[in-house]
């Protein structure tokens, strides 16, 4: 098994030193009228460059822009769609992070690109391949509410989000994105909705061009769904192993038809995993049928950690990789 290192998705947009606090400071000053939106965009660009540099310094082969510009995983995308208004704060799963809830008041429609500019910037400023991250239509719909007469029910909202994101996938592929990760954590909370997710992913996959499509699920145990996930129209599966006592065993016995993103390193806790323990899990997976290439990545986005700890986690990925390679040799 060829083992590469990848970031999952988000990265902290603040840290302990003044330079790392530029974005927070600039937003505060903008809100007081002392700075303008262009200053905020410049600060976002600076923090994005810092995030890219820290990921590549940690030795990752695949990086992200850290989602530095995202207010949250839900409103950053839906807020740019016609027919959607952004409302008050709600808790994002069981994290202590909050998102702004979209209110669908008319059929959601994509009038402008959502992430193309952010991707183009990251690609231009990264020495490593950049993965684009997109919250999936199902998770967006599950976190939205609909006004009476908005779009005609949950299925319609989902359909409209899917259409908008499919256009975005096409635009990203055209802009040169090689790898697009669709995140559907809500699927693990409502596995019975699997058929809908399958349908949405097919719509996205139809527009991906030569890009590879990844599905990421986290904040729950994917083992019960593992066989079904393997049949989805995606190239990669990025899985959270931290909720599952049996997922390593499941992968080892079932093998895989997809490239796997192995979320064996907990993106939500500061504790560093025992490297040889994780290397042993990797060995089990390596012996499975058809492991080919796999990525080692955190179990979820790293914005739940303080920056110094997020950085340590990334360096820990490399340490685990060394132990794994050492044992294989």
């Amino acid at each position: 098994m060829e083992l590469l290192l990848a970031n999952h998705s988000s990265y902290p947009r603040i840290g302990d030193d003044a330079d790392q606090q530029l974005l927070r400071r600039t937003i505060t000053q903008r809100d007081k009228g002392e700075k303008n939106d262009a200053d905020v965009r410049a600060a976002e660009a600076h923090l994005t460059e810092l995030a890219l540099a820290e990921q590549s310094a940690a030795g990752l082969q695949v990086v992200t822009d850290g989602l530095i510009r995202w207010y949250d995983p839900i409103s950053h995308l839906t807020g740019k769609l016609a027919g959607v208004r952004i409302n008050g704060l709600l808790r994002f799963f069981d994290t202590n992070c909050y998102f702004r809830q979209p209110v669908v008041h008319a059929k959601p429609q994509r009038g402008e690109p959502l992430l193309v500019e952010e991707f183009t910037f990251a690609k231009a400023h990264s020495s490593r391949p950049v993965k684009v991250v997109l919250t999936g239509p199902y998770t967006l719909a599950r976190h939205s509410v609909e006004e009476k007469g908005g779009a005609g029910g949950f299925a319609k909202v989902l359909e409209a989000f899917t259409a908008a994101l499919a256009e975005e996938v096409a635009a990203l592929a055209a802009a040169g994105a090689d790898l697009i990760q669709v995140e559907e954590p809500s699927l693990l909370k409502q596995p019975e909705d699997y058929p809908a997710v399958e349908q949405n992913l097919a719509a996205l996959a139809a527009r991906k061009g030569s890009a590879q499509l990844a599905l990421a699920v986290y904040f729950g145990d994917p083992a019960p769904l593992y066989d079904k996930l393997q049949t989805l129209p995606v190239d990669l599966l990025v899985l959270d192993f931290t909720y599952s006592p049996s997922l390593v065993e499941t992968v080892a016995t079932r093998g895989t038809a997809k490239t796997l993103g192995l979320g064996l390193v907990d993106g939500r806790n500061t504790r560093l995993e025992d490297a040889s323990g994780v290397a042993r899990q990797l060995e089990k997976i390596a012996k499975a049928r058809n492991p080919g290439r796999a990525y080692l990545n955190p179990s979820c986005g790293l914005e739940y950690l303080p920056r110094d700890r997020a950085q340590l986690k990334l360096h820990h990925l490399a340490a685990i990789q060394r132990v794994f390679l050492g044992r294989a040799a």
């Binding site: 902290p12 947009r13 603040i14 840290g15 302990d16 974005l23 927070r24 937003i27 505060t28 207010y71 949250d72 704060l89 202590n96 992070c97 909050y98 998102f99 702004r100 500061t270 914005e303 739940y304 950690l305 303080p306 920056r307 110094d308 700890r309």
Partner: peptide
């Protein structure tokens, strides 16, 4: 007391370890 983590938007807090 750990470094800053995000609560929402531009709000951050020190999460204990």
């Amino acid at each position: 007391i750990g470094g800053l983590v995000r609560s929402y938007g531009n709000r951050y807090y020190h999460k204990p370890i």
